[in-house]
Design a protein around this nucleic acid. Structure first.
Length: 285
DNA sequence: AAACAGGCCTAAA
DNA sequence: TTTAGGCCTGTT
């Protein structure tokens, strides 16, 4: 079944999708500027790349699954949202590949269950600088406060709702960032803004670089960016699906549900997608 | 009201 | 190389 895009008044409707869920994709903690509207978890509104947009999905009267994107055009879908939502990836195939990469036995069955729980999650490809800063803010923090801080940052230092540029955050200075209630993270955010704006760190080059460890090392030269933050930034903002962020939930899942022999490194180039399934299963099931 | 939140830094072994 | 405290803030 191939994907069909229909343009209509104020938006587009996409049919023929499989392995996609608005709710799971926006509820798994990778994006901080989207919220459900109308009490419906399968309808979220937010801002990405400076564009306000609404995503919703449902099964129509004919039983066909459809994704609706409001406030866009077919052209913009092709140039922006398709890549953002990772709709050009074959997640069905990826899922099979991931499952078969786990040695047969209890570990594989547990992972198969995690895939069933998390199926529908797509790894978004968000703005690089925004993702980097967002995950710096996320450390030792909780989702509601992370969202509040990001919103305040966009409000105060962004233009027309867009996430602030590195230059804008440099001008804010550490004091301005601290005033957003970022706490001890203010110095970290400022260091990131300074290094990116000054050209010391080239985010585009990192995106193009195929050497994952080199990319991670580069980001880790920013104060406040360690293994977890760099992995999340690379996964959700730089298209590095091999990144495997290990947080408290992952440690718990790996310790309690998988054997000693289980090695996440074997997931390979799509390890980050496996990570999301395991995380989602742990967090929500 | 003490503990905790999808970590990281620094100091010390 | 690994480990223990401490950190801003807002909630529970």
């Amino acid at each position: 079944m191939s994907i069909t895009v229909k343009e209509r008044a104020g938006g587009v409707t996409v049919t023929g999708l499989t392995h996609f869920s608005v709710e799971k994709t926006f509820d798994c903690g990778q994006a901080f500027r989207f919220d459900p509207i109308g009490g419906e978890k399968n309808r979220v509104r937010g801002i990405a790349f400076g564009r306000e947009v609404t995503f919703s999905d449902n099964f129509g009267a004919d039983g066909e699954y459809a994704l609706t994107i409001e406030n866009t055009t077919a052209d913009e879908y092709e140039s922006v949202w398709k890549k953002y939502l990772a709709l050009d990836e074959d997640y069905g195939k990826i899922n099979e590949e991931l499952i078969s990469s786990v040695p047969e036995g209890a570990d594989r069955e547990e992972f198969r269950f995690a895939v069933r729980c998390g199926d529908g999650i797509r790894i978004l490809q968000q703005d690089k600088f925004e993702t980097l800063v967002s995950f710096i803010v996320s450390q030792n923090n909780n989702i509601p406060r992370i969202k509040k801080i990001i919103a305040a940052m966009c409000e105060k230092y962004g233009r027309n709702g867009a996430f602030p540029t590195p230059e804008a955050l440099c001008e804010a200075r550490e004091e301005g960032l601290f005033a957003l209630r970022t706490g001890f993270r203010a110095a970290y955010i400022f260091d990131a803004a300074k290094k990116v704006a000054g050209g010391e760190i080239d985010l585009d080059a990192i995106e193009k670089c195929a050497d994952y460890e080199k990319c991670a090392a580069e980001l880790k030269s920013i104060k406040g960016v360690g293994p977890k933050v760099s992995a999340c930034a690379l996964l959700f903002g730089f298209g590095k699906t091999e990144a495997f962020p290990v947080d408290v939930w992952m440690k718990k899942a790996l310790a309690e549900r998988y054997s000693e022999e289980f090695d996440p490194a074997r997931f390979g180039r799509y390890a980050g997608i496996a990570q999301q399934y395991i995380f989602y299963r742990e967090r929500y099931k």
